[in-house]
């Protein structure tokens, strides 16, 4: 499997580290305990497209959000996690 780092180009998966589901978002500080339990423990296990966090650990050290098909390992998109987080913040504000 190879991942196209938006900063470095196409690199082997040996340069990357996997950090789990990128679709979960931290609940507000005053949210119910069950919301936090969901956030910490509950994960979907989709057969198909999955948004996940990767770190280009042996490269530029960037955090990435990779959309990967869990059945074929085909990668649809790779975005910088920073851009995803900024888009999410501006969405929440508008």
């Amino acid at each position: 499997m190879r991942i196209a780092c938006p900063h470095c180009g196409l690199r082997g998966v040996d340069e990357f580290a996997y950090f789990g589901d990128a679709s979960v978002t931290r609940p507000a500080a005053d949210a119910a305990e069950t919301a936090f339990a969901d956030y910490v423990y509950l994960r979907d296990n989709p057969a198909g497209a999955h948004r996940e966090l990767w770190s280009h650990a042996l490269g530029c050290q960037s955090w990435l959000v990779v959309t990967r098909d869990t059945r074929s390992h085909a990668i649809e998109t790779v975005e910088a996690a920073r851009d995803v987080a900024l888009a999410r913040t501006s969405e929440a504000q508008s």
Binding site: C8, R11, D14, E15, L58, G59, C60, Q61
Partner: peptide, 10 residues
């Protein structure tokens, strides 16, 4: 330039 690893050395 490139950031990568050589024999697992950053």
């Amino acid at each position: 330039a490139a950031l990568t690893h050589a024999a697992s050395i950053s």
